[in-house]
């Protein structure tokens, strides 16, 4: 139950609270470039989610078994603990490039019309910061973490898939807004990227409202915290302050 709870936390965190586009600023280039129409935006979101999952799977496997300090495969082959983490970034970018090639071949064979409508954007997913960012987050929790806190494959995949879902969510919302913006009188110099960024700022403000959701979810999921409740005593005896503190004590 607690493990499922931590998976849900990672999922909600990646999709909503720390949205890849609106909080971590990764994947901005397609976010601005491909968000003009709803169907292309949704297609791009799905493609990115697909590629991110494959890339996360492969990069977690490489990091866990080969690259991190004390990795099982390298110690087995070389006989002692070696730290190959300096090759991390090179391995990740090659994994990503191969994943994109794989997805491109798959889409060309099974969805030829979709392939044609994507055009040049499909190979461009290689330079999408969001995918490398997902790999880097996984690296942070596998390579640089204490042995008791290393992320398993399930958490890594959940982070990647729901990061992609969050990206799709943001890009689809933006596409919907931009389709309406086309009918508005936007000043000449702000047309295109300018107004998209300003709207993205307002979207980011809206998504900031999700901060703190994972904190209460975590409390709900973890049983037996083993910590005596810390009561908050208020000298004024007022019923409620205007903060987000709505937990029951």
């Amino acid at each position: 139950m607690e493990h499922l709870g931590s998976l849900i936390l990672v999922a909600v965190g990646a999709a909503l609270i720390n949205n890849f586009v609106l909080h971590y600023f990764v994947g901005i280039c397609p976010f601005i470039g491909v968000s003009r129409r709803l169907d292309t935006a949704f297609g791009m979101g799905c493609a990115v989610t697909f590629v991110i999952s494959i890339a996360a799977l492969l990069s977690w496997t490489f990091t866990y078994y080969v690259l991190r300090p004390g990795a099982p495969l390298t110690s087995a082959i070389l006989g002692k603990d070696v730290d190959l983490s300096i090759l991390n970034y090179i391995v990740y970018i090659f994994v990503i490039a191969s994943s994109v090639q794989l997805v491109e071949m798959y889409v060309r064979k099974f969805f030829p019309s979709l392939y044609k409508s994507f055009g040049v954007y499909l190979p461009l997913i290689t330079t999408n910061c969001a995918i490398l960012f997902a790999c880097l987050e996984i690296m942070k929790h596998v390579s640089g973490a204490n042995p008791s806190e290393i992320w398993g494959l399930d958490k890594a995949l959940v982070l990647a898939v729901f990061g992609g879902v969050g990206f799709t969510l943001a890009i689809v919302i933006m596409a919907g807004i931009r389709q309406e913006l086309d009918l508005c009188d936007v000043p000449e110099s702000l047309r295109g990227a300018g107004i998209t960024l300003i709207v993205a700022g307002i979207l980011a403000m809206a998504f900031m409202g999700f901060t703190g959701v994972d904190r209460n979810l975590k409390d709900a999921f973890s049983k037996n915290l083993n910590v005596p409740a810390t009561p908050i005593s208020s000298a004024t005896g007022q019923p409620k302050e205007l903060t987000y503190n709505v937990r029951q004590k």
Binding site: L22, S189, L190, G194, L197, I198, A200, G201, M208
Partner: peptide
């Protein structure tokens, strides 16, 4: 210093540069 400020500031500066 938060994400919304980054987006809005860059959007406005971009508009300024275009103008």
């Amino acid at each position: 210093v938060l994400p919304p400020g980054a987006f809005i500031t860059l959007g406005l500066l971009l508009g300024l540069a275009n103008w």
